[in-house]
């Protein structure tokens, strides 16, 4: 009896993400989901796909490490359904994603905390806001 699936993970650089996903689309890979994991000074973002060539339907995971403050390109150009997960990744983890086909600008989830799954990103956001406010105050003076 087959008990387990047999997924594979591949780490790619952020600069290679778009090219990898475009290649997957061309090879008819099925998009499954995107999720992030908060690490010490960065986040890992997992893009899961199913290769139509595999006989057992096992998934391929593309893992991208995203340092704090670095922007990630959207994959909605190739997989339009990814907009849900990209908005979610922004709203819960504070990862900035550029070029989403339907971008809610941080208003997709009505959560009471800023970036609840990644407190470090929330602190950075708060610091940036304070710095902006102080700079504005200095300019007004």
């Amino acid at each position: 009896m087959r008990r387990f699936q047999n997924p594979s993970f591949e780490y790619v650089g952020l600069e290679d993400l778009a090219e990898t996903v475009a290649d997957f689309k061309q090879r008819d890979f099925k998009f499954v989901q995107i999720c992030a994991t908060a690490l010490d000074e960065s986040c890992d973002v997992l893009y899961a796909f199913v290769d139509p060539e595999t006989t057992d339907g096992s998934m391929t995971g593309i893992m991208v490490n995203v340092p704090d403050g670095v922007h990630v390109p959207s994959i909605t150009e190739w997989y339009p359904a990814a907009f849900v997960f990209e908005n979610e990744t922004h709203d819960l983890f504070g990862i900035q994603i550029d070029g989403i086909n339907i971008d809610f600008g941080g208003e997709f989830y009505q959560v009471s905390m800023t970036f609840p799954m990644n407190p470090r990103a929330a602190e950075l956001e708060q610091s940036a806001r304070v710095a902006d406010a102080q700079e504005e105050g200095t300019d007004n003076e």
Binding site: Q33, P80, F85
Partner: peptide
């Protein structure tokens, strides 16, 4: 994803409706 203890480093659950929103 494990972290070597009884607590997981990450548990992700993607449900079917999330995937069907675009459709």
């Amino acid at each position: 994803k494990g972290n070597g203890s009884k607590f997981l480093a990450r548990m992700r659950i993607r449900t079917p409706t999330s995937q069907n929103i675009a459709g």
